[in-house]
Design a protein around this nucleic acid. Structure first.
Lengths: 143, 143
DNA sequence: ATGGTTGCAAACACTTTGCACATGA
DNA sequence: TCATGTGCAAAGTGTTTGCAACCAT
């Protein structure tokens, strides 16, 4: 019942951006909705294959790219050699990555919108997005 | 003469971080010093091979990683699928990338150090570096 | 029914690694 | 001299693409 409900929600969400609600897409939406840190594609694949939903890397890459085009996902890079993704529906925030243990924390203590507006006007450019990530040592690793 | 002088400088610079001044390394330092935007490795390889200095991708990747370890280079990601590098000796700045034409501008109008300090204290973490990049449309492409 | 979606295999881009040879200090 | 660095080839990731079969609408 719970599953059915969530599936239904995702269906509406997906159809709303002209995408068919296939099992892999619905499962991926569910995963993204219940995860609090940016996911890389390999993690998504592993998760899906652990569930009832067998799928293929090519499919997941395609879904993720589609979701990004449709504006459902933000792309994030944390200086690894790969992309991570987060739902755009989550409140805007930045990240802190511990270089020792790899832990990722959300940073939402402030906004750089004012700065962004100032730069935009001064340079006569249009800023559509930004990425701001911090790197260092987390509380635990500092001990 | 000019070349000899620059070579000499790089030799000191390289030996200063316990690296031998080989032709590829010196040429790469020269390139990095005279370029104002973050370079990807393929661009470095193409440049070196156009010059007198024939070299191999593996070598350039190794040099770049060494330079980074030694603190000579900063790694930058602009949401492409690859790394870019800049000399750490350049004044700290951020970047703006035009999503239409790919142009990269330096953004050094402001600092987020105050913000960084506040986050660091509040969360009891140690922030060692950050990346802040802006994406949008440049002046030209807005026309 | 039919156009969007998938799986599979192959290819591509970027990066790393092993090892024998070469070279800077 | 000899530890360090290089070239070459091979392999390892992450990602994209072509195409026939499949399935959501």
């Amino acid at each position: 019942m719970v599953n059915a409900k969530i599936k239904h929600d995702c269906k509406i969400e997906l159809n709303g951006v002209d995408l068919r609600a296939t099992p892999a897409r619905v499962a991926l939406m569910k995963l993204l909705e219940t995860t609090d840190k940016p996911l890389d594609v390999q993690t998504m694949i592993d998760y899906l294959n652990q569930q009832e939903v067998k799928t293929d890397p090519a499919t997941v890459f395609r879904i993720v790219n589609l979701f990004k085009e449709k504006g459902l996902l933000n792309l994030i890079q944390l200086n690894e050699g790969k992309f991570r993704y987060e739902l755009t529906s989550k409140p805007h925030h930045h990240h802190f990555v511990c270089e020792q243990c790899g832990a990722i924390q959300d940073i939402s203590d402030f906004s750089i919108k004012a700065v962004e507006d100032a730069i935009q006007e001064k340079r006569q450019i249009k800023i559509k997005s930004h990425s701001l990530e911090f790197f260092g040592m987390c509380k635990n690793c500092l001990k």
